[in-house]
């Protein structure tokens, strides 16, 4: 049993409820004790830092101070929301880097009888804890229902692998950790090229066209790779792609129905936990239909090797030709262009 301090963040019992529910079940199964820090407050998301510097960092540091007080034996503080994780990690790093910021934040915390010494709490993200502390071998050993037949596009979003203040990620733009984890669950993992591209964040609220365009890019690409669903680690990414897909379809005249779920939900399914307890059914773009594919043979090989091209005339110089067998992806693209 390993003990961790846990910072849920506001969305865990709101829009990201499926994440909260599934991670509780999965952590219990993995033997990770998550003890929630008492009376934590919002991390300020990406809004507070854009208003006023010292209050924004004092707001984050209150959580760090509470965590430092709750710490018994060097337990790390774990967040599962990417924005919360980044804010906590950034506050710790910047308080170390800028003594003036550290001083101001601590004077402010003093007004509430709190103090935080930067560096005294280790801040980590749940995915990284599962990869490094639990390990893929143990995850594999616990799989009772392999996700074979389910084609998933791993989507990390931005704020987990970047800017990475604590240097935990080997690759900031194409990290492989989530791919490996989903493979360990037995899923058919798409090599998703946009895995760390932006979902638009708060753009759906302040400049909808910009946000919806970014969402469209992601969903188009996942669809193009034949994914049954996208899998994410971030509640912001989840709600943007899940809830705004309707508005995106209306704006761009598309008909996408791409479900997006949290990685812990799929871990739960693979560990044999109940579908409903893992928060399935809370998503607006239904993912349960795709779940039925588990254990079935995939209908078509989506990324089939290109057909061998024959030269039309053996005497002629080799010329580029279209493959003999019709390529469904190419046809779909062509018909989209014609429309």
């Amino acid at each position: 049993m390993s003990r961790y301090l846990y910072y849920p963040g506001c969305s865990m019992d709101g829009s990201g409820r499926a994440y909260g529910e599934s991670l509780n079940g999965v952590c219990e199964k993995l033997g990770l004790t998550m003890s929630e820090i008492d009376d934590w407050n919002c991390c300020g998301a990406t809004e507070y830092v854009g208003v006023s510097l010292s209050p924004a960092y004092a707001l984050i540091a209150r959580n760090l101070a509470l965590a430092a007080n709750a710490k018994k034996d060097g337990e790390p503080l774990v967040a599962a929301c990417s924005a919360c994780y980044l804010n906590l990690a950034k506050a710790d790093a910047y308080m170390k880097e800028r003594p003036l910021l550290n001083e101001r934040v601590n004077v402010a915390l003093g007004a509430g009888d709190l103090h935080y010494e930067p560096g005294s709490v280790e801040i980590r993200h749940l995915l990284e804890v599962i990869m490094n502390d639990v390990g893929l071998d143990q995850v594999k050993s616990m799989v009772v229902k392999p996700l074979a037949g389910l084609r998933v596009a791993p989507y990390l979003g931005c704020m987990l692998p970047r800017p990475d203040p604590d240097h935990r990620w080997k690759n900031h733009e194409r990290p492989e950790e989530l791919d490996r984890l989903l493979e360990a669950l037995g899923a058919d993992v798409v090599d998703f090229p946009l895995k760390t591209e932006c979902c638009g964040g708060h753009m759906t609220q302040i400049a909808p066209k910009v946000g919806l365009e970014l969402i469209k890019r992601l969903v188009d690409e996942a669809e193009h790779h034949g994914a049954d669903m996208m899998v994410t680690v971030c509640p912001m990414c989840q709600i943007n792609i899940d809830a705004y897909q309707g508005e995106m379809n209306a704006l761009f005249h598309t008909k996408h129905k791409m479900p997006i779920v949290f990685f812990t939900q799929l871990m739960g399914i693979a560990f044999g936990l109940d579908e409903k307890k893992m928060g399935f059914g809370r998503e607006l773009t239904d993912a349960r239909k795709a779940l039925r594919k588990i254990g079935q043979q995939p209908e078509v090989a989506v990324e089939a090797a290109p057909a061998h091209r024959q030269r039309p005339d053996k005497r002629a110089l080799p010329m580029p030709t279209m493959p003999k067998d019709a390529d469904p992806v190419r046809e779909a693209l062509a018909s989209e262009v014609n429309q």
Partner: peptide, 21 residues
């Protein structure tokens, strides 16, 4: 809305920080 218990403490921290800013 969900509320935290120590709202007074939070207000004291934030207004002190704003003052310093």
């Amino acid at each position: 809305p969900n509320r935290i218990h120590q709202r007074k403490q939070l207000h004291a921290i934030l207004s002190k920080a704003e003052e310093l800013e």
